[in-house]
């Protein structure tokens, strides 16, 4: 409907105030929270993601749209819980131990939230045990790991090995990314997937969660 299209459009424009106002309007009209989420906010982020993937827009545009998405989500969240709307899944994200780089990891978080996932972002310099603890605490099925340094990449393997030792391999899927990381490296360390960027991270995680 037109109101939801306008939410998507204003979200693409990065207009947080407009997205909040239109979301409030949709809620007041009694539209189901899941419909507002899927056909308004997520539809808007899909457009932004596609524009980013095709280099029509760059990181600043995505960041402003993400802020607009949050403005709508803040209003919608209590209703999503109240109306028992399930999220697309839960993902634990972090930049691995010894690595402080977070722009790529944050972008993955934005894109995942934009696709309706619940994101538990552990920040940077995350030790393998911390990933494990977060997965257990939140019953998450996906771990997304980022590394920008060739020296910190091996920590990704530590996490994968730890999951195996703890009997969580297979149940908890691992997705890795970052400038020096490759598809081959993911295969070599036994990670479930490699993602080139935030958009492909969402695609890969959707596949993995669907498989589970």
């Amino acid at each position: 409907m037109e109101l939801l299209d306008r939410i998507a459009e204003q979200l693409d424009q990065g207009k947080a105030d407009q997205v909040a106002a239109l979301t409030a309007e949709a809620i007041a009209l009694g539209l189901p929270a899941g419909t507002i989420l899927n056909e308004g906010l997520i539809a808007g982020m899909d457009v932004v993601g596609e524009k980013f993937r095709t280099h029509q827009v760059f990181l600043p545009h995505v960041l402003l749209s993400a802020r607009a998405m949050h403005a709508g989500m803040d209003l919608l969240k209590p209703l999503l819980i109240q109306q028992d709307v399930p999220s697309a899944g839960k993902a634990v994200l972090g930049t691995v131990r010894g690595d402080q780089h977070d722009i790529g990891k944050n972008l993955v978080g934005i894109m995942l939230e934009g696709a309706g996932f619940e994101v538990i972002d552990l920040g940077t310099d995350v030790a393998p045990e911390k990933f494990l603890a977060a997965v257990r605490e939140h019953d998450a099925r996906v771990i997304g790991m980022s590394a920008l340094l060739t020296t910190t990449m091996p920590v990704m393997k530590e996490v994968v090995d730890l999951l195996t030792r703890e009997g969580l391999a297979g149940r908890v899927k691992t997705v890795i990314g970052g400038a020096p990381v490759t598809e081959d490296y993911a295969r070599e360390i036994g990670a479930d997937a490699y993602a080139f960027d935030g958009i492909s991270a969402v695609d890969r995680i959707r596949q993995l969660v669907g498989d589970a």
Partner: peptide, 11 residues
């Protein structure tokens, strides 16, 4: 590199 030439992450 992008199809439209060289850009930084921030565009």
């Amino acid at each position: 590199p992008t199809p439209r030439g060289w850009f930084t992450i921030m565009g």
